[in-house]
Computed example of a mutant assay.
Amino acid sequence: MKLLSSEIKNKVLESMIKIIDGKREQILKANQKDLDAFNKDDQALYDRLVVDNHKIDGMIQAIQEVRNQEDPVGKTISDLTLESGLKITNKTAPFGTILIIYESRPDVTIEAAVLAFKANNKILLKGGKEALQSNIVLKECWHEALEENGLSKDWIKLLHLQREETREFLKNPTEKLDLIVPRGGERLIKFVKDHASCAVLVSGRGNNFLYVAKDADWDKTVKVIVNAKTNKISGCNALDKVLIDKHIPNYENKLVELQQVLSNLNVDTLVDKNIGQVIENAPTVSNEDTWYEEFLALKILLAEVNDEDEAIEMINKYSGGHSAAILTESNDSAAKFMEQVDSAAVYHNASTRFTDGGQMGVGAELAISTDKLHHRGPLGLKQLVTNKYYVFGDGHIRE
């Protein structure tokens, strides 16, 4: 694969900023067609589909941020000269071709592609049919920017494949694939993993937990729970499950207060059988599958635990490995929780909504990886490279 200079890549991004800004009306009209054709029953998916001027500003900002970041390709990781005189240099290198499969969000057509392109990867975009018109216009913006700078449109392609065609492409790709990143729910991730013939980097699944320790500051706790649950229900970093230590002072009163606060915000509350004895009007969890579920809705599950150990055990069993938080005034309890909970991001006295590239100082992100290889957490520009060894000899042979 041809390595592009940082200069030419940045010129493409500069062109892209101007093109998107100049085509706002065209982008908004295309998005309105998608919105008009969409079944609004799925509010979370609908929210992700909407493009307005604020979203377009966000696209432009993402491109600007990536344009200003250092090129991640060709950076020396290690440089050794052995006693034999053999010189071994390890450098960052592009993956090659990355396929990104995503649902609903047209802004991913910009944010994912800009990261992959700056890291010198060819990008194949497979957006959901619900965002087709929006994605077509955004793809045309990419192609205009590439051609304006003398590059082939093949660097960024939008795939138009039905489900069966996608399955066949994953099994028998018509061009070389090096990495697939599915961004979406569990069904999409399972579909890709079941059929892919190359590496898959799992991202997007939340099912995030928060544990309220017995010494938690209650005002702080309610504030964090409300933010983590209601700030953006369609976010993979939204809160789904709250585990409450039964030894907190005024336990029953606080449960009732929390349920009332959530009810006033139109949040549906599920409870386990123990909390159900206190909050009698709330439906009780009857199926263990609910514990594994990412809600993506104004819905939350409240459950009782005996102590921190039980909370850690439950989180490691049921969560999606995305984000988990502890509310406690004890640094020791927080340290134990954060070390033992197996999630990409762990929090002490803070909302899970901060698991985001921009919020964590990474910048624009391709996704939030819940895999452990090759990276976990926000996948920013620096994480979209692999590595390559360069070995220099002078007739060296291995004895």
Rank of each mutant, 00 (worst) to 15 (best):
S5H: 04
S6N: 13
K9V: 09
K11Y: 10
E14P: 03
S15G: 11
S15P: 00
I17K: 12
I17H: 07
K23G: 02
A30F: 03
A30T: 09
D34K: 09
A44F: 10
Y46V: 06
V50L: 07
V50A: 02
V51I: 15
D52Y: 03
H54N: 14
H54L: 12
D57G: 06
Q61P: 01
I63E: 12
R67S: 15
Q69C: 10
P72A: 06
G74A: 00
K75R: 14
I77K: 00
G85H: 07
G85R: 09
I88T: 11
I88W: 05
T89I: 14
A93W: 14
L99R: 02
L99V: 07
S104I: 08
V108K: 00
E111F: 04
A112C: 08
K118D: 05
K118H: 01
L125F: 05
G128D: 04
N135Q: 07
K139P: 00
E148D: 11
N149G: 01
L151W: 03
W155K: 09
L158T: 10
L158G: 11
R163L: 02
E164P: 00
E165L: 03
T166A: 01
K171T: 05
K171W: 01
K171L: 10
N172Q: 13
E175F: 02
I180E: 11
I180M: 06
V181K: 11
P182L: 01
R187Y: 07
F191A: 06
A199G: 06
S203W: 05
S203Y: 02
A213G: 04
D215S: 08
D215P: 01
A216N: 02
D217E: 07
W218R: 08
K223L: 05
K232H: 14
K232A: 10
N237R: 15
L243C: 03
K246C: 05
Q259F: 02
Q259V: 13
N264F: 03
N264M: 09
L265N: 14
V271F: 06
D272T: 10
K273S: 14
G276M: 05
Q277C: 03
I279F: 01
E280R: 12
E280D: 05
S286Q: 13
E293K: 14
E294W: 04
A297S: 12
L298T: 07
L302F: 03
A311Q: 09
I312H: 06
M314H: 09
M314D: 08
S323Q: 07
A324V: 07
S330C: 03
S330M: 08
M338Y: 09
V341L: 08
D342E: 15
D342H: 12
V346A: 13
N349F: 06
N349H: 10
N349T: 11
A350S: 14
S351A: 12
F354E: 12
T355V: 15
T355S: 14
T355K: 09
G357N: 00
V362C: 08
V362D: 08
G363M: 08
L366G: 12
A367C: 15
H375S: 13
R376Y: 00
G377K: 09
L379E: 10
Q383I: 06
V385P: 05
K388F: 07
F392H: 13
D394Q: 13
G395T: 11
E399L: 06
